[in-house]
């Protein structure tokens, strides 16, 4: 694979990991959050500071960033997940902005608004590939287990979920923490890919972009999230001229999708080989059926 395509793969992979988290949170649990760029930022800065200042091994630093993001997610979620939709949304938005302002303010540690540079380029193809595989399998098995069923139950009908004994608060917290850990993890990889960090990389627009990606790909589908990530990451690479209009197009796309076809590219279903095989079998049956009739 050429360096260019490796680079693209790394970008898609990192974005996919964050989007998986947002997908679990928004697509499967129906929690709309604006804090995910904030969690990414926590993972990115934590790992970058650990590797540059304290010579901590790269993988350990990324892990530390992901865990810290998860802990902060646990704390924040415990405080705010009891709040209703809009109130919850505004607290996550506030959280994201606060993290940014805070990182700008504590200049001695983070380099402030001027940025943090000199991060070693550790993130390579292999580590991203392994991360994506692990993140995807964990997300897939989580969704296809009682945990995932509890989350979709909350999405579909929260009162009924409660009525069948699901601790909705605890399950929402699970989704929130998982999304925070994924964001922190991706943030760590991103920092050591970019080799340079600025608090404003992880602003509100970044959080919006993550949700936009999930919606374009299709809510309630990990496959959809993958497609969404590919589209959102690759389009501006393929059509360089479009980059000015990039966010404008995504904005319009989201409005159109959510009003006209809320399932996006591939929402509320998953790609599965067995289903495809079954579909082909049925197809051959149908065609052979018509042949018999014809004969």
């Amino acid at each position: 694979m050429s360096g260019y395509w490796q680079e693209i793969f790394v970008l898609v992979g990192i974005n996919f990991i964050v989007v998986l988290g947002v997908s679990i949170l928004t697509g499967f649990t129906k929690l709309f959050s604006f804090g995910n760029a904030g969690f990414m930022s926590i993972g990115a800065y934590t790992s970058a500071i650990l590797t540059t200042r304290f010579n901590v091994p790269f993988l350990l630093a990324v892990l530390a960033g992901a865990i810290l993001a998860g802990l902060v997610g646990y704390g924040l979620g415990s405080l705010t997940l009891g709040l209703k939709g809009d109130y919850f949304l505004i607290t996550t938005l506030g959280f994201g902005e606060c993290v940014r302002v805070l990182f700008e303010y504590i200049q001695p540690v983070t380099g402030g608004a001027g940025g943090l540079s000199g991060i070693t380029h550790y993130t390579d193809f292999t580590i991203v590939a392994i991360s994506v595989v692990v993140a995807f399998i964990f997300a897939w098995t989580l969704i296809h287990s009682k945990y995932g069923r509890n989350l979709t139950a909350i999405r579909e009908q929260e009162v009924a979920a409660d009525a069948v004994g699901i601790n909705t608060f605890k399950n929402k917290l699970l989704a929130f923490v998982v999304s925070a850990v994924y964001a922190g993890w991706a943030g760590g990889l991103y920092a050591h890919h970019l080799t340079y960090l600025e608090p404003k990389i992880f602003n509100l627009a970044k959080s919006a972009e993550l949700t936009i990606t999930t919606v374009i790909g299709g809510l309630g589908s990990l496959t959809g999230s993958f497609l969404g990530t590919c589209v959102v990451t690759l389009l501006p690479e393929v059509f360089r001229d479009l980059s000015t209009y990039r966010m404008l197009l995504y904005g319009i796309a989201v409005v159109v999708i959510i009003t006209v076809k809320p399932s996006g590219l591939y929402g509320y279903k998953e790609f599965s080989i067995t289903k495809i095989i079954r579909w082909f079998k049925n197809l051959s049956k149908r065609t052979s059926g018509t042949v018999e009739k014809g004969a």
Partner: peptide
């Protein structure tokens, strides 16, 4: 266990999933 006056199923999930969710305990 309870039902609701204005039926509250997990609407877009299938019949099996509706029952499975309730047996998660």
């Amino acid at each position: 266990g309870r039902t609701f006056q204005n039926i509250r199923l997990f609407a877009t999930l299938n019949v099996m999933e509706n029952v499975l969710i309730a047996s998660n305990l």
